[in-house]
């Protein structure tokens, strides 16, 4: 094969491009039809729009209350990431550095609980959350994401911290640095690459999550993008002009995130899955 670009390779290339086009077909249908009038969607589904109609977007944007739901999604995702990174990195560090039985037990519990499917927790969780008074609150939801995300986040940090040599910390302790200071000033900056991986994995999960927020956030004011899309679709069933524009609006933030962070996302997924 070498470095030559043979006719065989060009056949493979054509084949690959065809497969790629098949993958893009759904996007084509949704984008092109979101710019058509309702009548044209029904009569002319496969062709490009004859006249571009942007009213669908204006309508969907308003009816979704998009700025509000976007803000909610953003607050929930950012706040959950912050608490997950802070508390899980601290916990993982202490669990690695404290060579006691209890550390092992706690760590194994976090890891083992990753198996538990959400459906096995959700019913009593909603009851417990009601008792704790954290239902229908964004901060309650963030607290839940700290609980649900802790297993994987601690697992990834734990594996990474094990590889960091102790000498650096010992030197700092001799210089009179507190344990807290050692962690934040010396260890945490070393965790940058795994933190990027963790933030990407958790962001994609939390941003797209539907079931948990649908159970926790009943107030329409608190809805996230997936929730708003769900209710919008239910309300405007078969009104494809509005529904498709709403779907496109819902996807755009993800696409922007992807194209700005593409390299990190692919790297994050590769390293996150292999560990």
């Amino acid at each position: 094969m070498g470095n030559r670009y043979t006719w065989k390779t060009s056949i493979v290339e054509i084949l690959a491009i065809l497969v790629g086009l098949v993958f893009l077909v759904p996007f084509y249908y949704v984008f092109s039809n979101s710019l058509k009038s309702f009548a044209e969607i029904l009569t002319n589904t496969s062709a490009l729009p004859k006249v571009l109609i942007f009213d669908n977007y204006v309508n969907a944007f308003e009816k979704l209350d998009f700025l509000l739901v976007f803000k909610n999604s953003l607050i929930i995702t950012i706040a959950s990431n912050i608490v997950l990174v802070i508390f899980c990195s601290m916990a993982a560090y202490m669990l690695v550095r404290t060579k006691k039985k209890i550390s092992n037990i706690i760590f194994m519990t976090f890891v083992a609980a990753m198996i538990i499917p959400f459906q096995s927790i959700m019913i009593p969780l909603i009851k417990t959350a009601g008792n704790l008074g954290i239902l229908n609150s964004i901060w309650g939801l963030v607290f839940m994401y700290l609980g649900f995300g802790s297993g994987m986040t601690i697992f990834l940090y734990h594996g990474f911290i094990k590889g960091i040599p102790l000498e650096l910390e010992e030197a700092a302790i001799i210089d009179g640095c507190s344990r807290f200071g050692v962690f934040w000033r010396i260890v945490f900056p070393l965790l940058k690459s795994i933190t990027v991986t963790i933030v990407i994995l958790n962001s994609l999960w939390i941003w797209n999550d539907f079931l948990l927020p649908s159970l926790v956030l009943q107030d329409p004011e608190l809805r996230t993008i997936p929730l708003a899309t769900f209710f919008f679709f239910g309300q405007y069933t078969k009104q494809w002009d509005l529904a498709l524009a709403a779907l496109v609006i819902g996807i755009i933030p993800l696409l922007i995130f992807f194209f700005t962070m593409q390299k990190h996302i692919i790297q994050g997924i590769t390293s996150g899955s292999i560990k």
């Binding site: 508390f87 538990i116 927790i121 649900f148 297993g151």
Partner: peptide
């Protein structure tokens, strides 16, 4: 120190995952 570092996330994990799972 151990409690300070491990406590917060362990509390969230216990309340959100462990207790509901066991009561479930």
């Amino acid at each position: 120190l151990f409690t300070l570092f491990v406590g917060p996330v362990l509390l969230a994990f216990t309340l959100i995952v462990l207790i509901p799972f066991v009561t479930g």
